[in-house]
Design a protein around this nucleic acid. Structure first.
Length: 937
RNA sequence: GCGGAAGUGGCGUAAUUGGCAGCCGCGCUAGGUUUAGGUCCUAGUACUCGAGAGAGUGUGCGGGUUCGAGUCCCGCCUUCCGCACCA
């Protein structure tokens, strides 16, 4: 209930929810009508030389844009938005040309699934949701440049998403230059003979063969990829959509691991740069660490182990331990396993190695079947107990000629490295565990500490290693790599945990690929002039489903049934011909991978972004600066995927000369989450949180006691609180102030509606300083402040500026409340204090501040009024009070002038605590200037 | 298991980054205003002992460094987040 409902006798001019409901829409309309938050570009249609910030230093701040879900916003969603809004309002007043845009990431599964269920077109749902979000955001008074807003589903937007895809498709990564280059430069190399395709001269390859060779090098390419195929749903599933039992979470259908032809992006080519360029970013260290771990660059060597005329290549990060390699392990799926297996067990095969089978072939087949039957989860859950089986084959250790047995085991993954390892039990814990189970020899090649048990992975001098003996790990690695390269047994190498990016989806609601196929079945890029390839309407949004057990079925996408769209006659330069369109769509990441650039020049139909606009808003500011958005705020859940994909595309665009920055986001800030309590009754049923009351530290729903838990805000926990409710009950300004005051922006915390009233009281007190609640008259005086209050004001200004610069909004608000509490008891508030207070309030409570600013006699908006500046002379304290500690306990205080010498402070302090010293001679006296005096006896 | 983050009053938090622990707010207590409740204003509110002045204790636990530790170091405990045998 709002106050106006419970109070018949509220003074008519008090700041209440009802008054906020009058003030807030009025100022929102003013800002919209006057384009208050439009930011001028240097060039193009958004340039405006008359703008008050034209030519000013720029600041580009961005939020991770939302997916507009049908549920609307809850109070947790806008936390970051209010933070960036407060920050940018402050910076605009501090003189910056501020760009703060907002858009919508609107392709995606929920709208599509809703369409499958109801037949409603995803565009209809999406547009309605976007409108609802716009309304909710507008109601919070967020100061966006609305001219720059877009949705990733707008054809004018995804035209450029498709254009970037073509840029990627038409590029290859030149390892010698470590950058992407136009595919034409690669073709030139083949034509000139500088690069060889195979044994034949380039000109002897057929046109289709040439195209196939070129395609192998493109940054976007089609290849077989292992996926979770669910015939019952007719779709490919993410790991998280597959249950531990290997069935689909939705519908409980069987899921099959199989290969499908998929589009991929060669992000692995950028592995080095994606790791190295993290160093230049102002990002939270944990996020950088997560990216490094995800990319997982490891340096080491490929080593070739000969077996009967061919060889198995392994990757190792520890080539220095090669003398300790006493066996090898291949992934069960490794393609060479079949050609290794001999007809019978060799002499001396231990019983434990055979798995109880009469022949190696039977043992391998049985082990493979067992491994394949396990889901990925089972395989990893069982990882503690090492299993495997001997293949019957022996390889030769190239460094010493030793015959070593070759096993298959599921602790080696087919998809990582070469799918084969050399096992060094002395220096690897997994290999040690395996060696113990199968009774394999263990040779230490690094000197372990005297009483060390188990695999030793630390540093130390090499032992049992011939020419490496005595070297440390780093030197030994380098020496071994040189030796391998010299003898032709291997070479130095780097591998990545990162895998190429699976870029196609068998869905409807996504960007169509600007790709067609001709009779060769090879992909052809459409020319830019044919963009956008618009997503056609279809009758049925669901994929074709199959017999749930039919593992051999092939996905049939919604677009593939649209025959008149799929089969198309085009003139691609060699006359009209028939083509078949690509019917996969792009993943939801595509639209969010580059949106930061489109805000800069949202309506440009000649280019993704005008280079001058890009250079102004995102270009490097000095040597060594990667460039990018000045501040990017969003949740830590995007620490890896979104931020990695966006960095990758940005680097491709940089390499091809389309942008001057080589990183998209210079500074990253992760806001915390607002979580909420939920309540469960004795039967375990969640009850509506708003109906629960607290009595004596226990919680009751009606008469029934309920238990409290803590979790995400959401429908399922019946604990959603919306910003709309808060606006109705308190006003948007109160809500904004509360969200900013409740704690540091980067810390998660529980929502508590009953505490919001504290922020409303604060705003009421500020209002009351200016406005007489009974008459509505403005009651500030023109008298100057007394010196003490003036000093308090300037300390506040100084502190608030410092806090705002560091995004410490909670402490900034605490300081503003303190100042307000200082002014409240004064007989009349002086304009000298009120105007700076109102200006300092305005980033947090912009509607209230604009209204008071108007009442104080100013025209227009305060959005471009200078933020108050503290007078340094008033920040110097009049006197300093030193606490005097004796043996760590405060035993007295002395007050001295700020310029008192250290000796005088010491003397005064000793006199002050003479009684506590009781005649004892101080052993030590420490004077910390400006802080305290510590006496030790 | 590995990695990351974090543990401060009844609750959300603050602490100039090694210098008086608890700013600001919620809640609570008392008083004023009010017919009453609510609003608003004033005062109080870490814990223990004490009538009181005051004394002692206190930042998850146990050690350590230091004149001085919420902050730094070592070892544990708990919670949250992320990852899954990464050769």
């Amino acid at each position: 209930m709002s106050e106006s409902e419970t109070n018949a006798d509220v003074p008519p001019y008090r700041y209440t929810a009802a008054m906020a409901a009058e003030i807030e829409p009025r100022w929102q309309a003013y800002w919209a009508d006057n384009g208050t938050f439009f930011a001028p570009n240097p060039t193009g249609e958004l340039a405006d030389a008359a703008h008050p910030r034209a030519g000013a230093p720029k600041l580009h701040v961005q939020d991770m844009f939302p997916y507009p879900s049908g549920a609307g916003l809850h109070v947790g969603h806008p936390l970051g938005y209010i933070g960036t809004d407060s920050y940018t309002r402050y910076k605009r007043m501090a003189g910056y040309n501020v760009l703060h845009p907002m858009g919508f990431d609107a392709f995606g599964l929920p709208a599509e699934q809703y369409a499958v269920q109801t037949g409603t077109h995803p565009r209809t749902t999406t547009e309605a949701n976007v409108e609802r979000y716009r309304g909710q955001l507008r109601r919070l008074g967020l100061a966006y440049d609305d001219r720059r807003s877009f949705s990733t589903t707008d054809p004018e937007y995804y035209r450029w998403t498709q254009w970037i895809f073509l840029q990627v498709f038409n590029s290859w990564f030149d390892p010698s230059l470590r950058k992407a280059r136009p595919i034409a430069t690669l073709i030139d190399q083949f034509v000139s003979g500088a690069r060889k395709a195979d044994d034949r001269p380039w000109a002897e390859l057929s046109a289709a063969e040439q195209r196939a060779v070129i395609n192998e090098h493109r940054l976007a390419y089609v290849s077989e990829a292992p996926v979770n195929w669910c015939p019952g749903l007719g779709t490919v599933l993410a790991n998280e959509e597959v249950t531990p039992e290997g069935r689909s979470e939705r519908g409980n259908f069987p899921v099959f691991q199989r290969s499908l032809k998929q589009w991929k992006m060669r992000i692995t080519a950028y592995g080095d740069r994606l790791v190295e360029d993290l160093d230049g970013l102002d990002w939270p260290e944990p996020v950088k660490l997560m990216q490094r771990n995800w990319i997982g660059r490891s340096r080491g060597a490929h080593v070739d182990f000969p077996i009967d005329g061919f060889k198995i290549s392994v990757f190792t990060t520890r080539p220095d331990t090669l003398f300790g390699a006493t066996y090898m392990v291949l992934a069960p799926e490794h393609s060479l396993v079949d050609s290794l297996v001999p007809a019978a067990w060799p002499e001396g095969t231990k019983d434990a190695w055979t798995g109880g089978h009469a022949t190696p072939e039977a043992a391998v087949a049985a082990y493979r079947a067992a491994a394949a039957a396990k889901t990925e989860q089972e395989r990893t859950a069982d990882a503690k107990v090492k299993t495997g089986v001997f293949t019957g084959a022996y390889a030769t250790n190239p460094v010493n000629g030793a015959r070593i047995p070759v096993f298959i085991a599921d602790y080696v993954l087919a998809g990582y490295g070469t799918g084969a390892i050399m096992a060094v039990p002395g220096q690897d814990e997994r290999d040690w565990a395996f060696a113990e189970v199968f009774d394999l020899p263990i040779i230490r090649t690094v000197q372990a500490p005297a009483d060390f048990e188990g695999a030793y992975t630390g540093d130390g001098p090499a032992v049992n290693s011939d020419f490496l003996n005595g070297m440390g790990v780093v030197d030994a690695k380098a020496s071994m790599i040189s030796w391998l390269e010299e003898k032709g047994h291997g070479r130095g190498a780097t591998t990545f945990r990162l895998r190429d990016w699976l870029f196609s989806r068998q869905r409807y609601w996504g960007e169509p690929f600007p790709i067609v196929y001709d009779e060769t079945g090879l992909p052809i890029a459409l020319p830019d002039s044919m963009l956008p390839v618009e997503l056609p309407d279809v009758d049925d949004f669901s994929p074709r489903t199959f017999d749930p057990q039919d593992a051999a079925s092939e996905p049939e996408t919604p677009l593939s049934r649209k025959k008149d769209w799929v089969n198309v006659e085009l003139d691609l330069g060699d006359g009209p011909k028939q083509y078949v369109r690509e019917t996969n769509t792009m993943p939801q990441w595509a639209g969010s991978c580059w949106y930061e650039l489109r805000y800069l020049d949202p309506h440009n139909d000649k280019a993704l972004v005008d280079p001058e606009n890009e250079a102004y808003w995102m270009g490097p500011q000095r040597a060594g600066d990667p460039g990018g958005v000045d501040l990017y705020v969003g949740g830590v859940e995007h620490a890896v995927l979104h931020l990695l994909y966006a960095r990758f595309w940005h680097k491709v665009l940089f390499d091809l000369g389309h942008v001057s920055s080589y990183e998209p986001f210079r500074k990253l800030f992760n806001q915390g989450y607002i979580q909420a309590y939920a309540f469960r009754d004795a039967r375990g049923v969640i009850v509506a949180a708003e109906e629960v009351v607290e009595r004596d530290g226990r919680w009751f729903h009606g008469d029934q006691e309920v238990s409290r838990e803590y979790g995400k805000m959401g429908k399922s926990l019946k604990n959603v609180v919306t910003p709309d409710e808060m606006s109705e009950q308190y006003g948007a300004d109160t809500f904004r102030v509360y969200e900013m005051a409740m704690g540091p922006l980067d810390v998660s915390r529980p929502w508590e509606t009953r505490a919001v009233v504290g922020s409303q009281r604060f705003l009421q007190r500020v209002w009351r300083l200016v406005v007489d609640e009974t008459t509505g008259a403005v009651r500030v005086t023109e008298d100057p402040l007394d010196v003490k209050t003036r000093r308090a004001l300037h300390r506040t200004i100084d502190g608030v500026r410092g806090d705002m610069d560091e995004l410490r909004f909670n402490t900034a608000i605490a300081k503003l409340i303190e100042l307000t509490n200082t002014l409240t008891p004064l007989p009349a508030a002086s304009r000298e204090a009120i105007e700076p207070l109102v200006l300092m309030m305005s980033p947090f409570a912009p509607h209230l501040a604009e209204e008071l600013w108007r009442k104080l006699g100013h025209d227009g908006t305060l959005a471009y009024v200078d933020f108050p500046v503290a007078d340094p002379a008033l920040l110097v304290a009049e006197s300093i009070t030193y606490p005097v500690q004796v043996n760590g306990k405060v035993r007295g205080r002395v007050e001295v002038a700020p310029d008192t010498t250290e000796d005088s402070v010491r003397a005064a302090a000793l006199a002050e605590v003479a009684e506590a010293l009781a005649g004892r001679e101080p052993r030590k006296v420490i004077v910390v200037p400006g802080r305290l005096v510590s006496v030790v006896v």
